[in-house]
Design a protein around this nucleic acid. Sequence first.
DNA 1: ATTTAGCACTCTAAGAACGAGAGTGCTAAA
DNA 2: TTTAGCACTCTCGTTCTTAGAGTGCTAAAT
Lengths: 344, 344
Amino acid sequence: MMLDERKIKILAAVINDYIATAEPIGSRTIARKYRIGISPATIRNEMADLEELGYLSQPHTSAGRVPSHKGYRFYVDFLMPVKRLDERDHTLIHRIFNRRINELEQLVKEAARVISKLTSYTTITMGPQLETSRLKHIHVNRIDENRGLLLTVTNYGTVGHHIIDIPQNINDSDLLRISNILNSNLAGKTLSEITNDIMDAIKDEMIEYDEILNILLEILLENLGDSQDNTPVISTGSSKMLDYPEFQDVEKAKNFFSLLEQHELIIKALKSSSKPNAITVTIGNENPLTELQDLSIVTSSIFIDGKDLGVFGIMGPTRMEYSRVISILEQVTDYLIKTVSTML
Amino acid sequence: MMLDERKIKILAAVINDYIATAEPIGSRTIARKYRIGISPATIRNEMADLEELGYLSQPHTSAGRVPSHKGYRFYVDFLMPVKRLDERDHTLIHRIFNRRINELEQLVKEAARVISKLTSYTTITMGPQLETSRLKHIHVNRIDENRGLLLTVTNYGTVGHHIIDIPQNINDSDLLRISNILNSNLAGKTLSEITNDIMDAIKDEMIEYDEILNILLEILLENLGDSQDNTPVISTGSSKMLDYPEFQDVEKAKNFFSLLEQHELIIKALKSSSKPNAITVTIGNENPLTELQDLSIVTSSIFIDGKDLGVFGIMGPTRMEYSRVISILEQVTDYLIKTVSTML
DNA sequence: ATTTAGCACTCTAAGAACGAGAGTGCTAAA
DNA sequence: TTTAGCACTCTCGTTCTTAGAGTGCTAAAT
């Protein structure tokens, strides 16, 4: 059976109301609030149909209806009202992107913060993937007699710094030479291309600097691999999450927070949910990871010039303000792409 | 009335038991568990005295006793058993400080993580105070035709980096000159000493570089002021905090998390609690900030050569494993001071 | 053929009543 | 001074009850 117009209207009404109130919606409520011109009894019949079709369900026999995951899916695909952001939302987003921020990481962090603030859900951010991130610049600076600063900059503008010990026998022109050699050998490579082989080649080239090169290369290998870009940044207004009726039960809340602490799981979830250059919505049991099946995830992946700069994700109860979340994510993504484009 | 030995024994028993179980402790329990050789009735009398003296209180007339803030204070000052850390704790701490970490910030972050892990309470960290932090090294590196990297290193080893635009007319030797000038003018100054006056002096010295200097100085002023060192880092195993019976009520948990989100308040709390070079315990209403009066805070401030490198704080319910927390904090502080001393 | 009014039925959530259990304070005996 | 005994208090979990919301079905109305 296809959904006729009236069923669709009723479904939309139920879902909109449920998203707003978190209470099961009964036929009376709909008849009263949305003047469709039919009686509760008729609505009841329609709702029974909708339930049979899998769009709604009942918490128990004599309660109103709540949307099923399938219902939410239909809603997101076809029914969702386009939510225009209001003045306050816009200005807040604006303010962030108007500050001159030159570093991708900082920018992303700020963006996550504003999203979390605007949506009151948990925001997760993942930086550019290792595979696509290229080393752009390497340099060793001296900061005092026996200490130096190893700098790495990727093509995404991510800066890494590490304080290192500089052996006695290395002077400033040595450092310059080393920086140059590292640059010419490593710049342009993706992080995963920097293997022990290349490292060994460099060492062969400059046996006189063996000691310091060992230090440098060790740090490079160790830190580029699991740099911060790869770990998710999580901005959770924990206290705000506890406002949702879904988390009134401490046990449920604890589950949620524990999930957030399992970074590998979160990474997997974001990766599997997100699609290049698009906003995706993963609802409840659509998620392959069983632990996340009563949550929904909305992601937006930031693509510029075909390069994956990372993913924003929002996690919350399946009863989520999808339309608002999506608008905000669209908006922020837009700004971000504009801003970053000028940076690269 | 002074506390005689028997009263003290009973007080210790009540507090130890209450810390372990979070249940009000009755006279029977004590008679059974701690064989003091007196009957429950006698214990009851003593407990009534202890209550009158303000060391214990009753949640309601027919319940057991729980420690009052005054009771905890006495416990911390005189009764607390010295808790030796066990093997597992030691090895965990060891592992962290054995990794070669060259940067203060990273080190502190790791230390906070391990404390939070070992204690299951919320750990807060505050970096060195602005007033004492001195600029050690400034440098501008070029990373491509029109982009550069402004680096700042403080005497604590905190590294700051900022990507900047480099005007067309500036070449590499200009950059070097600029770096040198900045260094000679600013190195050694505390961050708060770097005022507009000094900046103007520098600009006067090098009018030909006006454009880029403006950019650099603006960033310096803007970012050194409210650098990360000044904001508290909070490691909260949120999910673990939710295990404590004190936070079983969602409302209470929400309060706690909201508090953590008010950074200014947290900063104030840590500042007013901590004492140079010492471990402090602030129990419940001893805290001047009313919002924190049913929590306890244990702090340890890291002092080296008379310089304040920052503060660790642990926040949790007043029913806290004080002796364990203090041992862990002592231990970590020790290691940290040793490690950092070699760094400076 | 739909729609709707009417009604019996179901289930929950909130409150009332109740008893068990833990603990107390007091009294009087040891 | 200590302790046994006992009456008393308060909480907490259980059971019972009831009001209310909502349903599904039937039969009448459109």
